[in-house]
Structures are given as C-alpha cells and as structure tokens.
C-alpha cells in the first residue's frame, strides 16, 4: 500500500541533526575554552581580542554555517506531500531552526564574557 522508503534511519536521525550540531558545538566550545585558558591563549593579544576568543568565534561560526547548510539540505529534500517522511522532514527542519536559535542564544556570549576568570 505504501511505497518503500529509502533510508528510513536517515530520515529519523535528521530530526536530531540540528541539535546534535548544537551539542557538538557545546562540547568543542567548552573544551576549547578550558584548554585555551590552560595553554594561555587568552594572553595572546590579537587586535581587539585575543587568540582564545578568535578560536572560539571561529568554532561558533563554523557550527552556525553547518546548521545553515543542514537547513538548506532539508529544504531541498524532495518529500511526498503527506505521510511520515514529510512529517519527519518538517520536524527536522523546524528542529534545525530551533537549534540555530539555541546556538545564538547559548554561545553568543563568547564575544563578551571573561574567558578565563
């Protein structure tokens, strides 16, 4: 009655892809912050900021970029008009947007707060 769906697991995993990137960003940013403080990157002046902040900012932007790419991928995915695949695609898409908003809300402070104190 239903056509077989290719890669069911992939469709399912996509609903957590956005937030998985958020979690990855969290681990990397927190780990880099701690490591950078230990290694003294915050003491290396780089223009208006320091090395640690630049590395953190780079990681932040990389993850935002990856999430935007995910949104683009999900929007371009060809899905049926109804049924589970469409449902999962919509959930994945809105979750990805929520993850982007969460990324901004959670990590934007790295441009401002004292990194090692």
């Amino acid at each position: 009655m239903n056509r077989p769906v290719p890669h069911p697991t992939r469709h399912l995993l996509m609903i957590v892809a956005g937030f998985a990137l958020w979690a990855l960003a969290f681990v990397l940013l927190y780990g880099t912050q701690a490591t950078g403080c230990k290694a003294g990157w915050h003491l290396v002046e780089m223009g208006p900021a320091n090395l640690l902040r630049l590395v953190l900012a780079l990681l932040f932007l990389l993850h935002l970029g990856a999430m935007l790419a995910l949104v683009r991928y999900l929007r371009r995915q060809v899905v049926p008009m109804a049924g589970p695949v469409r449902f999962l695609n919509r959930v994945a898409l809105f979750s990805a947007w929520a993850a982007i908003a969460s990324t901004l809300f959670t990590f934007v402070w790295l441009f401002w707060l004292s990194p090692c104190q």
Partner: peptide, 28 residues
C-alpha cells in the same frame, strides 16, 4: 520534546556555579 532533551544535556554545570569555573563557560 526533542529540543528539551538536547538542551537538558547542556546545563549540568549549573550545579557547579560555585566551584570556580570561568564566567564565559558559566555563561554557556
């Protein structure tokens, strides 16, 4: 529910705000 599940893994250090972790990490 999915969002809550993930966010809940990113707030454990709020039990550790007094151990002396730098403010930037506390901010996250």
């Amino acid at each position: 529910v999915i969002a809550m599940a993930f966010l809940s893994f990113g707030l454990w250090v709020h039990h550790m705000f007094t151990v002396g972790i730098p403010h930037l990490a506390l901010g996250f």
